[in-house]
């Protein structure tokens, strides 16, 4: 069962990589895609299932592209 996951609006992502630095080092579930969006930016994607839904990536994201979900207690 996933503790959390994110959804990314890839067309709005500008590839600034701030979310990757904000993800806790022990979790490190984000990386930049090799593909690009319509504007030509490498967008961010979740590549590991280790997300805990802390929301740090969404707090740092300047363009509000990330929606964060956390397991309901």
């Amino acid at each position: 069962m996933l503790k959390g996951f994110i959804e990314v609006d890839i067309e709005r992502c500008k590839g600034c990589e701030l979310c990757i630095g904000a993800c806790p080092p022990k979790i490190a579930c984000l990386s930049m895609s090799k593909q690009t969006n319509k504007k030509g930016y490498h967008f961010m994607e979740q590549t590991q299932n280790s997300c805990i839904g802390c929301g740090n990536c969404a707090l740092m994201c300047p363009d509000s592209v990330i929606t964060v979900y956390r397991l309901k207690k």
Partner: peptide
Amino acid sequence: YEVIWEKPKGLKEKQMHYCPG
């Protein structure tokens, strides 16, 4: 799953012209 963070409703859909970051 509960939504921890989503795009504020007050922000329009238009993509911001600001530089990345």
